[in-house]
């Protein structure tokens, strides 16, 4: 069967912050949202692209010369995504590790082999495998195939989702999943669209449907200063969650790591700049969540 399969942009072993225990995280490319603060900007587009590590570049211009579609800017050395066919010629010719391919096709079997390498550690640490992205749920058939195999080994599965997916298709693979990290960014659809490119109706309705059929959901909110951290919005989130019968939220404080990654793939990338919350501000936000009946959990 021919299923749409994602490009894989990273497989991270010994991950200890993406679910319980020691985990391997599979990162798939492509995301329907384009959050301005995105921590993995290289995951947004569906095709492979070439990352430019300018600090390693010796200005030899070999990449510019070899590019069959003239996609590389001779001065900035950044690839033009529209013109780049991700053939990898520039990556191969670069002697200085200044160009790296982001996203590669792997067969289902290759992926499974890689994911099973740390199986002993999963069982001893009560860990498992996490699928992240991009948005893994936009490839339900692909996921289903892999999860079925992984579940034969009784591996704990966690999916990190932005919530924008086709619920009917995802419902089929829920039996293979143990935990879902569900992100909520903003409850106002207009603002949601302004910061993430799309409206939030599908996301919120998916959450409503999911919570009736799937037990182990962890709601996560990336806390973005001046975007979704005001008291009014916090109350709206709390009301929404309480109505759905959910009492816990994990808060992910904003940090600016995504910015440095964004310019590797697009030097014109609009840099989203806000000042991260201080400890005091975070405490205040936490107490507001508590005040509105939701138990907040933060990470240092």
């Amino acid at each position: 069967m021919d299923r749409p399969t994602p490009y894989i942009f990273d497989i991270q072993r010994f991950s200890i912050h993406d679910g319980p225990g020691i985990r391997t995280v599979l990162f798939t490319k492509s995301c329907p949202l384009k959050c301005k603060w995105c921590q993995n900007p290289e995951s947004q587009k569906s095709k492979p692209e070439v990352g430019f590590y300018f600090e390693n570049c010796q200005d030899c211009n070999k990449c510019v010369e070899i590019c069959p579609t003239n996609a590389i800017d001779p001065i900035t050395k950044i690839s033009n995504y529209a013109a780049c066919i991700a053939c990898g010629a520039c990556v191969d010719i670069c002697e200085n590790d200044a160009r790296r391919m982001i996203g590669q096709k792997m067969s289902e079997q290759e992926i499974i082999t890689e994911l099973l390498k740390d199986i002993d550690f999963y069982s001893d640490s009560e860990g498992g495998i996490t699928f992240s992205g991009g948005e893994p749920f936009i490839y339900p058939e692909f996921l289903g195939g892999i999860l079925k195999e992984l579940k034969k080994q009784k591996i704990h599965i966690n999916i990190e989702t932005c919530g924008q997916f086709d619920f009917e298709k995802v419902a089929n693979i829920l039996p293979f999943i143990d935990l879902i990290y569900f992100d909520i960014k903003h409850l106002d659809s207009q603002i949601h669209k302004e910061y993430t490119v799309i409206a939030n109706e599908t996301i919120l309705s998916n959450f409503g449907k999911l919570i009736t059929v799937f037990e182990n959901i962890q709601v996560r909110i990336p806390l973005i200063p001046n975007v979704n951290d005001d008291k009014e919005h916090i109350k709206a989130v709390c009301d929404f969650l309480l109505k759905k019968g959910h009492k816990l939220v994990h808060l992910l404080p904003y940090h600016s790591m995504g910015n440095s990654k964004a310019i590797r793939i697009d030097y014109k990338a609009e840099i989203f700049k806000v000042k991260p919350h201080t400890k005091e501000e975070l405490n205040k936000i936490k107490s507001q969540f508590s005040e509105f009946g939701i138990n907040p959990i933060t990470y240092d």
């Binding site: 010994f14 912050h17 002993d120 001893d124 640490s125």
Partner: peptide, 22 residues
């Protein structure tokens, strides 16, 4: 940072557990 805190401590403990079991 890896080893401090409960999460890091448990992960390190699990690494050694697996290494020694094998």
């Amino acid at each position: 940072q890896t080893l401090t805190g409960e999460i890091g401590k448990n992960a390190t403990k699990a690494l050694v557990k697996t290494f020694f079991k094998r």
